[in-house]
Amino acid sequence: MRDNLPERMEHGGRVRWHRTREQGRLLDFSANVNPYPPEIPWNPDPSALYDYPDDRYEALKEEIGRAFGRGTDEIAVGNGSVELIRAFCSAVLGRGDAACIVPPTFAEYEMAVRLAGARCTPKEAGAAVRFLCNPNNPTGRLCSREEVLRLLSGTAARGSYLFLDEAFIELADPRQSVVDVRHENLFLLRSLTKSFAVPGIRFGYAFGTPELIARVETVRLPWTVNTFAEAFAIEAFRHYDLLRASRERIAREREWLSAGLESLCLTYEPPSANYILIEIPLPAELLVERLLSRGILVRDCRSFGLPCHIRVAVRTREENRQLIEALEACLP
């Protein structure tokens, strides 16, 4: 029996749990999903539940390949991005290996590394994998394409992998993506569910060389993408270009929300996607509780090692207005 398992990580998006306890309407600013998702003509066929999914997901990978100009053997799919993070770590890391993770960033990288028996370090030297979230969660910092390519060149020179998480880049600036780059030291992760605002179906996908993808697919549990999620994803990739309108509307609301935070004299990280990291003048848990009493759920960032920060999603204008009003009432 293993007695050194790490504790489960805390995440946002617990609105369903809070709703059952609070017995009221909540505005969920804790989950970073697209507030202006494209309308997808998706009508799930109940008869699809009678068969197992195609565990090779050939039709789905063909649609992804058409959207990005990649071969099906360069694509992995999973039940959310977290499954692929863990599958990748299980495939390439072992006991005694090290992975470079620079905090604050997505907590599941550390969890996956430790579950694979490896250790985490903030130093790139000697690390078998360098993790980069671009744009970063929770800070929102977006590295340019040139910065990412330089980092890839450096990791490759050391014989290491670059694990690049582009889960939010579709809602930030896709011009900075390196999804078109084929490199034996690169594993690139994406998430459909954030961009199309369907976190309930759990779907993530990734790109790498055929050899690396084969290893990840071997580690991944079979049939984890259910038939409803597969059907939605196929239709979403057929309408992938509609995300441009989402980005434009998010950018306008992000600017408005940022101005509202400035009016409250709050300091925040320069945002690039559909969320903003905010420094607050009191412990995060106190403000979270005050906002919750007003029907507003935000992300407590203590689990990122930031005890006086919250992260808020960019939502619609009226919802963002309600957030600013609630912050004004709850701040000291």
Rank of each mutant, 00 (worst) to 15 (best):
R150F: 08
F68G: 06
A99S: 13
S195W: 02
R182T: 13
N137Y: 15
C265L: 10
L277V: 05
L291N: 03
Y50K: 12
L60V: 08
Y240R: 12
R244S: 13
F304K: 05
Y50E: 11
T105Y: 07
T218R: 15
I310N: 03
G65P: 01
R119V: 14
T72E: 11
Y57S: 00
S263A: 13
R19Q: 15
A326L: 07
E262L: 13
E279W: 06
G71K: 10
A284H: 01
F228L: 14
A76I: 02
R14H: 14
E62G: 07
E262D: 14
R119C: 12
A128D: 05
P270C: 01
A98L: 14
E166V: 04
C133W: 00
V113Q: 04
L186S: 09
G69H: 02
S30P: 06
R66P: 03
G94F: 11
R294M: 09
N79E: 08
S195N: 04
L60G: 08
L27T: 09
F196N: 01
E184I: 11
R238Y: 08
P332Q: 03
S293C: 11
A326W: 01
N43F: 13
S90L: 15
T209D: 11
E285Y: 07
E235N: 08
V82R: 15
R247W: 03
S160T: 09
M1V: 11
L149P: 05
Y57L: 06
L291T: 01
F88N: 08
R294Q: 11
A259L: 10
I278W: 00
L221S: 14
R215H: 09
P307G: 04
E230D: 13
L115R: 12
L287P: 03
G208R: 08
A273V: 01
R8N: 13
Q176Y: 04
A156W: 07
V312S: 08
W17M: 15
A233R: 02
N320C: 08
S303A: 14
G80Y: 02
L297H: 02
E39N: 13
G71R: 12
R190T: 03
N320W: 01
M111C: 10
D45E: 13
L287I: 02
P38V: 06
P103S: 10
T155K: 08
R238E: 11
I280Y: 02
F163D: 06
N43E: 13
I310P: 03
F168A: 13
H309P: 00
S30I: 04
R66Q: 10
R21Q: 15
P270V: 00
D300N: 14
L261I: 01
G12P: 01
F131S: 05
C143R: 15
E289P: 04
Y205N: 02
T105R: 04
S195A: 15
I280C: 05
